[in-house]
Design a protein around this nucleic acid. Structure first.
Length: 635
RNA sequence: GCCCUCGUAGCUCAGUGGAUAGAGCGACCGCCUCCUAAGCGGUAGGUCUCAGGUUCGAUUCCUGACUUGGGCGCCA
């Protein structure tokens, strides 16, 4: 027995029949304890989750020591090995309610702990920690679980009442190629969706297509102006139109398909358009000049619509279809798939935007001022009221977003998660406010804000603007760094943390990327198993008793922590936790691999070690799959 | 100005109401006759921005400063 001093208790867990009445406890309590023991003692062969098991033991003890105090049982893994395999601070938590010294409470708790065949030793240490040391079979049980469950190891079950969840992410305007900022949102959203699915939710991945509104008009008119240039009709190209080369490509396509069908004289185009300010060298326009530029651009859009008539729809549709297809292809290549592409325009076409505003109006949350209709969002926690319909009759983006979210709720999800860029955070209050105004449960809506990505090249910040066309596309990034490194790099940071993406580093020293470290562990295991050449499936039944080394048991503990890591990451919407977990798992494997030989002479030891290696590989594979990173068999 | 966010090793970042706060990179010293050296072991490096408060206990929670980034349109 491990009694380091008189205050430390010990626990005869392996010998439930031992007579402990010598401790002075009445026989009646002992009998009660036996009854509980029968309820909480499990045979070794069953699937076993240590934290849940220990929590169950402690719950029973707490109910006996402090009935009615519903303290949360919090089991954690101590940082120091000397503190056992698991620790619990329950005694400290109860100290206040019981008005008693935590160590005394801990002693009583330990005294009332039901017997468990999994527990080897219980110690009280420090201010009142209860430290558990498990029997070896408990530590290696995770290996058996991982091998038996395979690709399902770590899967969870969603909480009752929250089964169907929608994750909406990327939702970039289809007005040009996706850039590295979208790449982060895509990596985060896709991994989060996979994580939630693995954690037991029914997940719907959705992309909201902003195919209505001014940005699309600007793209269409940009394309048309480039098209006119191809026929020598030179309208000065506005600096606030889309500059990218892809716009010229679309103009070429329109020309190839329809020749000069959409050509109008430049003079006719400019006839009724308010003049643009004189162009500047550095683009340093004053506020007034900027307004003038926007009016000029709107004038060009009006002119295009007037001159083209019904054919405007073709140019508009062509630009939209092209960009959406490009975006979709880019994402598919990135390993990011969507179940649903939801059109903003469909909300207008089906009258849902008007209906949403009418619903608000019916409930008295709309008023008219200066010819516009305002939603009284201040009554729902927003800092100011918001326009939903402008004085020119057009609905605002906010109006369609209200309709969109109302529609999401109508579709019956238990949870709706929006992944937004961090610059949209001011938008949360008004959307939630609108939902409340529509008498919907706004708490069903969660919003994850993904911080910006700043690109650095050769130590200098790269300016990024979609309109100027001066940005690094996601496609370029993927081609230079690779999908795996790209996904993993993004995920090795909390989403609410701004990310500095050093292109020079990512491109020139990509072998330093931690993704290779994790993948290498997987490849190494594959290599060892291949050299062994035996039947890997048979390792499920290997005797794991030879796994007694410190590194081996630590690795087992790491594997055991995987299901809880999944559950925690899903609950926190934090897929980056998986990335860090995998890195730690790989590190422990590499350390073990270097310290011990796997393919040793002793068949029992060899099989046990191979079983452990196989379990590590399984967990690496399951984790990498969630992150959308490949698990190569050789590198 | 108001609202939000951030502040942890030289750098980039994890983490936590608990016991001696971690990793990668960089620096330094080692390890291939041996299952993949894209690997491993070791050393150095910290007032967890500061000041109060809550608590048995605060780097963690609260308040306030200072700091980082962002948002405050009849744009999307």
């Amino acid at each position: 027995m491990n009694v380091s001093n008189k205050n430390d208790s010990h626990y005869p867990g392996r010998n439930p029949d031992v007579n402990t009445s010598g401790s002075g406890r009445p026989e009646r309590a002992d009998a009660a304890r036996r009854i509980i023991s029968r309820l909480t003692t499990f045979p070794i062969s069953m699937s076993f989750e240590p934290k849940a098991h220990l929590a169950g033991l402690l719950r029973a003890a707490a109910d006996s020591v402090a009935p009615g105090t519903a303290a949360d049982i919090h089991i954690e893994r101590p940082k120091q090995a000397a503190h056992g395999d698991f620790a619990c601070n329950l005694a400290m938590q109860l100290a206040r309610a019981l008005k008693e010294n935590p160590r005394k409470i801990a002693e009583r708790l330990v005294h009332e702990l039901p017997v468990s065949t999994w527990v080897e030793k219980v110690e009280i240490a420090g201010a009142g920690f209860i430290n558990f040391t498990l029997v070896p079979a408990a530590k290696t049980q995770a290996v058996k679980n991982a091998l038996a469950e395979g690709g399902d190891y770590g899967k969870g079950t969603a909480p009752v009442g929250c089964k169907r969840i929608q994750v909406e992410f990327v939702s970039a305007n289809p007005t040009g190629p996706l850039h590295v900022g979208h790449g982060r949102g895509a990596a985060y959203g896709a991994s989060l969706a996979s994580l939630l699915a693995f954690a037991g939710y029914e997940v719907c991945r959705e992309y909201y297509v902003n195919d209505a509104g001014r940005q699309m008009d600007i793209l269409a008119v940009s394309t048309w102006l480039r098209y006119l240039e191809l026929f020598g009709e030179r309208v000065p190209f506005p600096p606030n139109a889309y500059q990218g080369a892809y716009v010229r490509d679309m103009a070429e396509q329109v020309k190839a398909a329809h020749a000069d069908r959409y050509v109008h004289p430049a003079a006719a185009v400019l006839a009724c358009v308010p003049p643009a300010p004189a162009p500047h060298e550095e683009g340093a326009y004053t506020k007034e000049e900027k307004d003038q530029l926007e009016e000029h651009l709107d004038g060009l859009i009006r002119a295009a619509k007037d001159l083209l008539g019904e054919e405007w729809a073709y140019v508009h549709q062509h630009a939209l279809a092209e960009q959406l297809a490009d975006c979709r292809e880019d994402l598919e290549q990135y390993g990011v798939h969507f179940d649903c592409w939801f059109s903003e325009r469909s909300l207008y076409d089906t009258g849902m935007v008007a209906k949403a505003v009418a619903e608000l109006e019916k409930r008295g949350h709309i008023y008219v001022q200066d010819g516009a209709r305002w939603f009284r969002s201040t009554e729902f926690g927003d800092e100011k009221d918001r326009v939903v319909q402008r004085d020119n009759g057009l609905y605002t983006y906010f109006a369609s977003d209200i309709a969109y979210h109302a529609n999401k709720f109508e579709r019956g999800f238990d949870k709706v998660l929006d992944v937004w860029g961090a610059d949209h955070h001011g938008y949360i209050a008004r959307v939630k406010g609108a939902l409340r105004a529509l008498e919907l449960d706004a708490d069903k809506l969660d919003i994850a804000l993904v911080q910006f990505v700043s690109l650095f090249r050769d130590g200098e910040k790269v300016s990024m603007s979609t309109r100027s066309g001066d940005f690094v596309t996601l496609r370029e990034l993927r081609e230079e760094v690779g999908n795996d490194a790209c996904r993993f790099f993004y995920l090795l940071r909390k989403c609410d943390q701004a990310l500095d993406f050093d292109l020079t580093l990512a491109k020139s020293e990509s072998s330093d990327n931690p993704v290779y470290y994790v993948q290498y562990a997987h490849a190494r295991i594959c290599s060892v198993l291949a050299q062994w050449g035996g039947d890997a499936a048979a390792l499920v039944s290997a005797d794991l008793a030879p796994l007694a080394g410190e590194k081996e048991l630590a690795l087992c503990a790491r594997i055991a922590a995987f299901p809880a890591t999944i559950a925690g990451a899903a609950q926190e919407y934090a897929p980056h936790t998986i990335g860090f977990y995998l890195r730690d798992l790989a590190a422990e494997f590499h350390g073990w691999y270097n310290a011990e030989r796997l393919l040793v002479e002793d068949d029992g030891v060899k099989r046990a070690r191979l079983a452990l290696a196989l379990a590590v590989r399984q967990v690496l594979k399951n984790g990498l799959r969630i992150l959308g990173v490949s698990a190569p068999e050789s590198m």
